[in-house]
Design a protein around this nucleic acid. Structure first.
Lengths: 297, 297
DNA sequence: CCACAGTACCTGATACCTTCGGTTCCGTGA
DNA sequence: TCACGGAACCGAAGGTATCAGGTACTGTGG
């Protein structure tokens, strides 16, 4: 492959922002020299053209590498080495390492691309049928479609390389969780389950209650994503066995479960008791206290 | 540590069978010389004393290594190398590799130990309060207790090394899923949600309907485990933030969600419609068909 | 105003280091 | 003779260093 000269201005610098969910601290691992730190455009000094001239080229090249990595993973499986990816890109490892700090950086970049695509698909569906019920079903559908259409990329993106990558889940699942939590948290405050606004708690809510409600939404979202993940991976492994549902059946089933669970429960308890915090502690709160693990023996 | 000579008969050879869920194909990876293949007791030849002499020593040593590995992971984190584990055991890598085929074999063995422990704790709780509702709560509680008391071991056991390890989930999650699916599948056929027997479909059910019901139970179990996993890992990462619930609150919440979801849904639809398959396809079945991923571009 | 030297950055390659999973070999002891 | 146990060894993979180019921007002298 001939070297891409910066003057050629090959492709437009990739749609929207790749920094979705940039609040994540480890997102900075994505690229070592993305330019956000040393771009002199906002600097006091005038922009040195020798520095700025590579900006869009870098972006394009990086996106290209992400694309190639994704394709390679799709074909070769999630265990591809960096050398394989580099040679698939017609270059050598050092180039890849120039754009991504390490392998998890590349993984994060691929995950961001996939999340962006999921987000797009989701928005497309929701623009057609914007009921919350349908939104949930669309999320499940999109997730399962993705998992089926490219299980290798899914595995690559889902896998968490080491512990020290911020959260315990990979960034992909984190992003998806945030994607799911946002409308749910909104619905938790504003809308009822039939889509009509009810103006719950319009004002004068203590701050800790707010954060508790947000935490509630996030924990549910994490669990819901986990549910879809678990059911999806189970299905991926068992879908050839007799009696296993096909994707659409599973989609409907999982969406129904999730819908009947938290959303319906919240709607029900809101209908009956509003001041009561939504822990639904109807049963006793005594934990098992079985002291399950004694690792230190 | 002094070498354990085979005649010493140190510890009893670990309670019950370690071959829990031995239907799993990759469970044979657990140990290269566990004896299932070359134990001469069932062989045509008479038991050679020189061979049988080591049998219990092997078992004890293996269990000891599992214990040490677990302890080491608990302290050093899930990224310990085999050499670290070996030196923690006061020996060298080759010994470890004599008892475990590879690192995932060791991982599986540790996972089996943990699952065994979870199972024991679960049975203890259920012997006290054997209602299904309480069973679900106990499962969630045990899982979250484990995840909290030793996140490193949890991470070690949960992580799936490569793709070619049978299922996409690690054996730990597979085992836990089976653990959860079993009572649920039983309850799906026999008991109602209030614990009274209803004798549903006593006979003359087509075989495919049976397998479909089993698949339904398993998919729900996989999803439920995923839900607990997702919520638990989210909680592990966010529990220090304001508004986050403590473990007991989360336990109650998650159990309520899961209970209200599938179990309540099944109970509800059983109450209304029995012949109708439990997909609850009240809404339209048209999938999104957004064709989310095009990896091959 | 313009050519030329210098500079800043990129590309691509090869060799190298380190870590770690896994294997081989050999001595030893019951 | 058999298994044990240690230590050296191997190969793969992530990641780094350094090299030789190459191209466009910048400044300065004629």
């Amino acid at each position: 492959m001939s070297p891409i000269t910066p003057g050629s201005r090959t492709s437009p610098p990739q749609p929207g922002n790749l920094t979705l969910l940039s609040t994540d601290p480890a997102a900075s691992r994505g690229g070592r020299a993305t330019g956000a730190t040393r771009r002199p455009a906002e600097d006091a000094f005038a922009a040195d053209g020798r520095s700025t001239r590579w900006a869009d080229h870098r972006e394009a090249r990086r996106a290209e590498l992400v694309r190639i990595a994704r394709r390679t993973v799709h074909h070769q499986g999630p265990d591809v080495s960096m050398e394989e990816i580099a040679s698939a890109a017609g270059t050598s490892k050092s180039i890849v390492y120039r754009y991504f700090a390490d392998k998890t950086g590349l993984q994060i970049a691929v995950a961001e691309a996939v999340v962006l695509q999921i987000q797009g698909a989701l928005e497309g569906v929701l623009r057609v049928a914007p009921t919350p019920r349908e939104g949930l079903r669309a999320m499940v559908a999109v997730y399962l479609e993705m998992i089926e259409s490219s299980p290798h990329v899914y595995a690559f993106v889902t896998r968490n390389g080491s512990v020290e990558s911020g959260g315990p889940l990979g960034h992909f699942l984190d992003s998806v969780t945030a994607l799911v939590a946002a409308p749910f948290a909104r619905g938790l405050t504003e809308t009822s389950d039939d889509g009509r606004r009810t103006a719950r708690r319009p004002e004068a809510e203590p701050a800790d209650a707010t954060s508790a409600r947000i935490a509630l939404a996030e924990s549910w979202a994490a669990g819901a994503v986990g549910f879809v993940r678990g059911a999806g991976e189970w299905w991926l492994a068992h879908r050839d066995e007799p009696g296993s549902p096909d994707r659409e059946e599973l989609t409907v089933q999982v969406a129904a479960w999730l819908w009947a669970g938290p959303v319906g429960l919240l709607a029900r308890e809101r209908r009956t008791d509003d001041a009561h915090p939504p822990t639904e502690a109807g049963t006793q709160t005594s934990t098992a206290h079985t002291s399950t693990t004694q690792e230190d023996r």
